[in-house]
Design a binder for these strands. Structure first.
Lengths: 237, 237
DNA sequence: GCAAAAGTGTTTGGCATACACCCATGT
DNA sequence: ACATGGGTGTATGCCAAACACTTTTGC
């Protein structure tokens, strides 16, 4: 059965997404090991139906991989260098047992030069139910500092996404998309430290956050530790 | 003779550019009156050859219209809503005496839903030698506050371009691309006032600019006016 | 001398950083 | 009592905005 229908998509145009998650004080990126010879990893991506809006396409692709809807998702750049293609990868693939999903023509289509619209997304990592894409051997959350070899310009895509994330983090208050509903000030600070890769002063950080007037203070969180119990906070919608 | 060859371009993908210029204390945008029935104006745009880099395509299109090379030019956003097409315009065109340049199939191709990569450019307005595009009745520099009816989402494109311009104006020191080689501090201030649409305090503006350490002070400029002669400045490469 | 515009200095206020202290909690 | 981490208050320094004054130029 043939599942992939190249003729339904716009030619030479793709979407790639840098999906950020946060756990264990690490800012993580979702990457997939490509099911080909060699150690190739890739960002989750896909294609755009001929009449589909690009934002909708990106949301669809995100949902296919994570199961999540209504997630923070924003385009940040187009990568459209001349010669930008996967041909080496797909030529490799032709010597590998292939899926029934694809015809030789599909591989030719996939090997073209592609212009890719890059999106970045922020997700609460524990809500994600990962699904593999058709080309994926496995998908994993990886600390952005320890990324494996990414295909094509995907490393550059992560770099630019991180840059954009940092620029917008405060301005658009998007960081809360990475945290669960409630959190302590310490947890919020550790998120900032992971994103900016630098320490923040505890007292000044707290003041700055409270001065934003977007946090709602809830009850205290008794952890059983031998110290003062921290307050829980919630982001005011 | 047929000049337009749709089959050489990527399908359903286009480039549109917001080209900014500055003159008479006004920030201007280059727009073209489309050569169809009715009062339709459009941003300069074009298409991408199948193997052409997007930045190169944008530069090529810019050069076709302005005669300028090596100009500040940057992509800032993709406009790819579902239903984004020129079909109304081109259906109109079919009832109008048409050029030999296009076949009926070309018009069909042009009427598809398009995803457009938007660029913004900054040019020194006096160096520009304007050329009309194939669809243009005329091209003009228009104050961004007095733009005519633009087709499709081109008004939105200008809005976003202006937003991006303002965000990057200081950070990337790109304003100098709008001015001639040498200029007075007053002229620079007036440029800032046109871009941000608000007044700047003379003394503080001067201090801020000089503190950037990117301006070279040249000789004085004697205008013949009954007041102190201002210095000329040049942007250090 | 005078009007007009340029150049520069001084004061003020807000905000980020640094330093310091007190409070709650469990052993 | 005390160690640990949480919460908050105060002092410092920088930068932008506001205010003020002097200088140059042509009539």
């Amino acid at each position: 059965m043939k599942l992939f229908k190249a003729e339904e998509y716009i030619d030479q145009l793709s979407i790639d997404s840098v999906i950020f998650g946060y756990k264990n004080k690490e800012l993580k990126v979702l990457v997939a090991k490509v099911h080909f010879e060699g150690d190739f990893w890739s960002l989750p991506g896909g294609f755009i139906y001929k009449e589909e809006g690009t934002d909708l396409a990106a949301a669809r692709i995100l949902e296919e991989r994570t199961g999540l809807r209504d997630i923070f998702l924003e385009q940040y750049r187009v990568f459209g260098q001349e010669g930008r293609s996967n041909n080496v990868l797909f030529e490799n693939l032709l010597n590998v047992p292939k899926s029934d999903f694809f015809t030789k023509e599909d591989f030719k289509w996939l090997s073209q030069r592609f212009v890719s619209i890059a999106y970045y997304a922020l997700v609460e990592i524990d809500r994600v139910k990962l699904s593999k894409g058709v080309f994926d051997e496995k998908v994993e959350w990886v600390d952005y500092k320890k990324l494996p070899n990414l295909i094509m310009d995907h490393s550059l895509m992560v770099e630019h996404a991180l840059e954009t994330l940092r620029l917008n983090f405060d301005r658009k208050l998007i960081g809360f998309n990475l945290l669960p509903e409630t959190f302590t000030m310490r947890e919020l600070k550790e998120l900032y430290e992971a994103v900016y890769d630098k320490p923040f002063a505890r007292n000044n950080f707290q003041k700055k956050m409270l001065d934003l007037n977007v946090l709602e203070r809830l009850e205290k969180k008794y952890t059983g530790a031998a110290n003062k119990a921290p307050y829980l906070y919630r982001f005011k919608h």
